[in-house]
Design a protein around this nucleic acid. Structure first.
Lengths: 245, 245
DNA sequence: GCATCAGGTGTACGGCGTACACCCACCGGT
DNA sequence: ACCGGTGGGTGTACGCCGTACACCTGATGC
């Protein structure tokens, strides 16, 4: 009891400590489990204490986005627009892979915070100095959309979330026996033959059919490059509005 | 008091009535304001009554997605793959414009419901019968991503939501005086010159600068066509994996 | 005429975000 | 050496949320 209370030893809070704690906590328990109360408990503080540093939960999330954006590499210099954009986007993607909550927070936010605007501005800048007209840049940014953050709506993939691979340590989707899996695939093929066809590889030697591993990173780059190629074609041919097909 | 109580006259609930009421309510008050309690009140029923028809809120949302998917036009027949996809996606887009909650619900759901799978399956089917290899179809579907539902992350646009243009009737973003707007644009240009450049048109005769109206539909179709063109190029040149650029 | 049971009810619990009043340790000024 | 102010942490409380569980009730089949 000679020990000073936690409150006495605990360093003072400030906005930055709150935000980093929130980010770290979201990394651990998932964004949907992140509440003001849970965060306060993490910081050994009563919930209302947080409100001395962030106005409300919305602003907390905005602040977390700030941290996220700060982790994205600065734009590469001395390279053409295409590789500059490519590198930047892939850097953003790595950030979002480190912080799975980033994507949903980014999506949920209307996000006109300076940090976000700054990132957007610098991406636009890369296009403009790369020879895109303002008009074309505008369209191209819309086309890029959320891909500029390094993610896209992945339509097939897992519930994911940090808890999926969490406490029990298994996390794998394949806790069903091979036979059961096989049966499920069979059923899938019956009702949704086209999905089955594109999601499955050909039959193996042993006659079984297996799900093709789906390399998200490769898929992302495939789509990104497809867009970048399209952009370059428009730029090179001097695209201008009202001259579309 | 001779009037029978509301409970007596009210038609019996069933899953479908619950779902359509939920959809209509979400149209009116916005998805974030849709709660089980609010929906129950709308149906003149006690909250727990809903649970006799849907297992929980998650399943309610899944059911709402079902309704959504059902509103999308069936695939066009007798046209090439490109126009078939284009029409389908634009039909989906019209549905989501009618039901602004659709997008966020679709995004939030991991969505392996039969209705969703059915839609995806039929889109895949259009590609496959259009001459795409299974492998290429797979990639192309990933590239299409959420655009298959007719939306993309629009990075610049408004908070939106049905309440924005709600009770007070104004709803316009431009409730600030022209001078104030002008000042805000000036400030924007100062901090984010690239955003300003692509978002603003040239100066008017009178020297003022105005925000370019941003036609979301046009932007969407621009990006969609860019992707479809890319897809066609790959298909026509017999793209196969490991032979990328 | 009675049992069954689907569908509607009432109450309660544990969570959430946050308004508001408070208290206290520290500070600079006198 | 005192003292008023102030910034940061506290305690309590409110009104929402989703939903578990026990209950009631009125129609239906035998």
């Amino acid at each position: 009891m000679a020990r000073p209370s936690a409150a006495a030893t605990r360093p003072r809070l400030n906005r930055h400590r709150v935000l980093t704690a929130a980010a770290a906590l979201a990394d651990r328990i998932g964004i949907e489990a992140l509440s003001m109360r849970r965060l306060a408990q993490e910081l050994d503080v009563v919930p209302m204490a947080l409100y001395k540093h962030v106005a409300n939960k919305e602003q907390l999330l905005d602040g977390m986005v700030e941290l996220l954006v700060a982790e994205i590499d600065p734009p590469a210099t001395g390279v053409d627009w295409r590789t500059a954009i490519r590198l930047r986007v892939l850097s953003a993607r790595r950030v979002l892979l480190r912080h799975p909550w980033g994507r949903s927070v980014l999506e949920s936010r209307t996000s006109r915070t300076p940090a976000v605007l700054g990132y957007i501005d610098s991406v636009i800048g890369t296009f403009r100095t790369g020879g895109f007209s303002d008009e074309l840049t505008h369209h191209v940014m819309h086309a890029l959309g959320s891909r500029m953050w390094g993610f896209t709506q992945e339509l097939f993939d897992e519930p994911a979330g940090p808890d999926a691979s969490g406490a029990d340590g298994s996390g794998a989707d394949e806790d069903a026996s091979p036979e059961v899996q096989q049966a499920m695939l069979q059923a899938l093929a019956e009702h949704f033959p086209n999905i089955a066809a594109t999601v499955l590889t050909a039959t193996h030697d042993d006659g079984t059919v297996v799900a093709r591993g789906c390399d998200d990173q490769a898929e992302f780059e495939f789509a990104l490059d497809l867009m970048l190629d399209g952009f370059e074609r428009l730029r090179a041919t001097g695209w201008s509005p009202r001259v579309g097909h």
